[in-house]
Structure formats: C-alpha cells, structure tokens
C-alpha cells in the first residue's frame, strides 16, 4: 500500500502549550543551543509555534500556529537541491539525507515556510546527552541542513513490524512524536489517500486550509483547521 502521509492540526483545540515542540526535540535531538546562538536566531527546532499578532491594545487578535515541515507535494526545496539530498519519496515524504547534503543552503532559502534549518556550528552535545539520543535518528553534523521528517524512523520500524506479520503498515500504527504527545488531541496523522481515514476527512472539512497554498501552489500535506469564533 503506497500511502501519502499527511497531517491535520486543529487550531481550535490547540492550546499553544508547546508540548509538540519539546516532544519533537526529545525524539529527534536537535542541537541544544547556546545563548549566543539564540540571540542570532540559529537555534534549530524542527517544530516551532509561530505567532501572528494583529491590532493594537486592547483590540487584538493573535494566532499561534504549530509549524513544521509541510511535506509539500510540490516542494520548492527539492527543486533547488543540486545533489538530491532532499527529495520527495514515493510516499510523499520530503526526505533529507544528511550525508548527501553539501551545505549550499539553497533549500533553506527556497522554503517559504522557513522550516529548513542549517547547522552553522557543531551541535554541542556532551557524551551523556548523546547517549540519551534516540538510536533511530542520525545525529546531524555541522554544515548540513535538517528538518522535520514526519518521524520517518518510526515508519521504518512500524513497517518492519508489519512485515513480520506478512503485511504492509496500516494507518494508526505510525504517528510522529508531536502527534502522539499533543495533550489536547489537536493533531491527526495518517494516509491522505485513504478517503475514509480521519486525516483525509478532516483535510476536506470546511474549516481546513493550507498555508500559502493559493499564493505559491506548494500543495503542503499539512492542513490546518480554522479556529471557531
């Protein structure tokens, strides 16, 4: 079964707590970061809550959007990579192969969602921190770009478990760390090509929208459900 993996984030029930951000960090061990890197905006977190504020006190409207790699069906980053270190795989996941990356940062520039991150410096892990890193995820090195992978390593393990039972991996057997961690249940993940799946149904809902879809035609596979006013 060739799935097309996608995600829906319900901005009505999202409480902005940031658990998805730290769960992603615990799962994928991005660089810890230092104050100097923080000041220069070079701390890498694959998932970020992006604030948008409109108006003047006290007539304010704001939104906090959990933003991760949108795994576009027409990914601008793939079009510009000179070495195919980033490419779209048959299941729709936009992959980042660290060992092919030459660090040119064309993809970092090309991504309209600013979800590709370049390692400007050596990630400073101590030996003890590195020992607690997820063994299923490569540690990145200086000079390569990284981004959200929809926790593809979990798909690899789930696929193997399914193969042991003589079948393909099914929906519900694999979910990224952020989706699993969300305490308000605001994130849904699954196969967009399965019309009966919850993610496919929600992506067709009248509350669903994709960010920058009309402007750029990137066809992101992450849909957001508008807040109910």
């Amino acid at each position: 079964m060739m799935a097309r993996w996608g995600m829906v984030v319900d901005l009505d029930s999202c409480s902005g707590c940031g658990t998805c951000v730290t769960a992603c960090s615990a799962e994928n061990t991005p660089m810890p970061g230092t104050p100097a890197e923080g000041a220069r905006g070079r701390v890498i977190r694959w998932m970020n809550l992006l604030p948008q504020i409109e108006g003047e006190y006290p007539d304010l409207r704001a939104e906090l959007t959990p933003m991760m790699c949108q795994h576009c069906d027409r990914p601008p980053c793939v079009f510009v990579c000179p070495v195919s270190a980033t490419y779209k795989n048959p299941e729709g996941l936009v992959a980042q192969i660290y060992w092919r990356c030459i660090g040119c940062r064309y993809c970092v520039n090309a991504c309209p969602y600013t979800v590709k991150f370049f390692n400007w410096s050596k990630p400073g892990f101590t030996a003890a921190q590195a020992a607690c890193a997820n063994p299923d995820v490569s540690m990145r090195q200086v000079g390569v770009t990284e981004k959200c992978s929809f926790c593809h390593h979990r798909l690899q393990r789930a696929r193997e478990a399914a193969a042991a039972k003589g079948r393909e991996v099914r929906e519900g057997e694999y979910a990224p760390a952020c989706v699993e961690a969300c305490p308000s249940g605001s994130m849904v993940f699954g196969n967009l090509d399965n019309p009966g799946s919850e993610v496919a149904k929600l992506a067709r809902s009248n509350r669903a929208y994709k960010i920058l879809e009309e402007e750029l035609g990137t066809h992101p596979k992450v849909s957001y459900l508008k807040r109910r006013i």
Binding site: T19, T22, S25, A26, T126, A128, Q129, C132, A181
Partner: peptide, 19 residues
C-alpha cells in the same frame, strides 16, 4: 497519557552537564 512540555526535557535533565 497526557503530558506537558516539561516531561520531554527529562532526558536532558538526566544527562545535564551541570548535574
């Protein structure tokens, strides 16, 4: 099963260099 963001810092607390 609900957790807050702090729980996902536990491994870094365990391995913290200032421990």
């Amino acid at each position: 099963g609900a957790l807050c963001l702090k729980a996902f810092g536990l491994l870094q607390e365990y391995a913290h260099p200032a421990r």
